[in-house]
């Protein structure tokens, strides 16, 4: 346990990995489209955490501001993309719910062979 705490970068990356694993698990388990969207948000958070940890805690960033800013701005762009994605998914779920009367991914399977 103390060896694990000795490397902060490893701790943060493992936390990000936990988010990724939980998101993947939920994405496979959930049956409603909104539940799947929640899982995708978990995974996107993991990505942001990993990027910020990699730049904030890497040895090279102390003297290079451009590189250090890249991580924080990258996380900001991920948040923007997540907001755009959530808006579009909301609109798509609404159209699907109007057409099929449900937002369950088992019912909305017209392309299934």
């Amino acid at each position: 346990m103390s060896a694990l705490f000795g490397n902060p970068l490893l701790c943060y990356q493992l936390a990000a990995l936990t988010l990724l694993a939980l998101g993947l698990l939920g994405f496979c388990l959930r049956r409603t489209l909104v539940g799947m969207l929640i899982s995708v948000e978990l995974m996107l958070n993991g990505a942001g955490l990993s990027i910020v940890a990699a730049t904030q805690l890497s040895p090279a960033t102390a003297e290079n501001a451009t590189q250090a800013g890249l991580g924080q701005l990258g996380a900001l762009l991920i948040m923007g993309l997540a907001a755009a994605e959530a808006t579009l998914v909301l609109a798509i779920v609404l159209v699907l719910a109007k057409r099929f009367g449900t937002s369950s991914s088992d019912v909305v399977a017209e392309l299934k062979g």
């Binding site: 049956r31 909104v34 929640i38 959530a86 779920v93 609404l94 719910a97 449900t102 369950s104």
Partner: peptide
């Protein structure tokens, strides 16, 4: 912002429970 959007999506699809 994002969680309010998702709450809207839950409300507008009548917040179905899943089995």
């Amino acid at each position: 912002a994002v969680s309010v959007l998702i709450f809207f999506a839950i409300m507008l699809t009548r917040g179905e429970e899943e089995g």
